[in-house]
Amino acid sequence: MPDEETQAAPPKGGLPIKTLAAVAVVVIIEAVVIIGVFMLNSGPEQVAADELATDVVAMAEQPAELLVIAEKFQNTRTGRAYLYDTEVYIVCKSKFLGTLESRLETNRAQISSDLAFLFRRAEPSFLLEPDLSTLRRQIHAVLDSRLGKDEDSGKSYIDEVLIPKCTQFRSDG
Results as ranks from 00 to 15, higher is better:
Phe117Cys: 00
Val56Ser: 08
Ser102Thr: 14
Leu162Phe: 09
Glu123Pro: 00
Leu83Gln: 10
Ile163Cys: 02
Pro2Asn: 10
Ala70Asn: 15
Ser42Leu: 14
Thr19Ser: 12
Asn75Gly: 03
Val47Ala: 11
Gln138Pro: 07
Lys12Val: 08
Arg137Gly: 14
Thr106Ser: 13
Thr99Asn: 08
Glu4Ser: 08
Ser102Cys: 08
Leu128Asn: 09
Gly79Cys: 05
Glu123Val: 05
Lys18Glu: 12
Pro10Leu: 09
Ala49Arg: 10
Ile158Glu: 02
Ser156Trp: 05
Ile29Asp: 00
Leu83Met: 10
Pro124Val: 04
Leu66Gln: 06
Gln168Tyr: 06
Ala109Val: 15
Pro63Arg: 07
Arg121Tyr: 07
Ser112Tyr: 05
Thr99Val: 07
Ile28Met: 06
Arg146Thr: 09
Arg108Ala: 08
Leu127Phe: 02
Tyr89Asn: 10
His140Gly: 07
Glu45Thr: 15
Arg108Pro: 10
Asn41Ala: 15
His140Lys: 14
Ser153Asp: 11
Glu71Ala: 11
Glu5Trp: 00
Leu104Lys: 03
Ile17Pro: 11
Ala53Asn: 10
Val32Ile: 14
Ala8Ser: 07
Ala21Thr: 07
Leu83Trp: 10
Met1His: 09
Tyr89Ala: 08
Ile28Gln: 00
Glu129Gly: 03
Pro16Ile: 01
Leu97Gly: 04
Gly98Tyr: 08
Glu5Lys: 00
Asp131Met: 05
Gln110Pro: 05
Glu5Cys: 05
Val161Ala: 01
Val37Lys: 13
Asn75Trp: 03
Ala109Pro: 07
Gly148His: 02
Val91Gln: 03
Arg120Ala: 09
Arg80His: 09
Leu20Thr: 06
Leu83Ala: 14
Ile17Met: 12
Gln110Met: 12
Leu104Cys: 06
Gly43Gln: 11
Ser145Tyr: 00
Phe38Ile: 14
Ile34Asn: 13
Val161Leu: 02
Leu143Trp: 02
Pro11Ser: 09
Leu52Gln: 13
Val47Tyr: 10
Thr76Leu: 06
Gln46Ala: 15
Leu127Glu: 02
Ala31Gln: 01
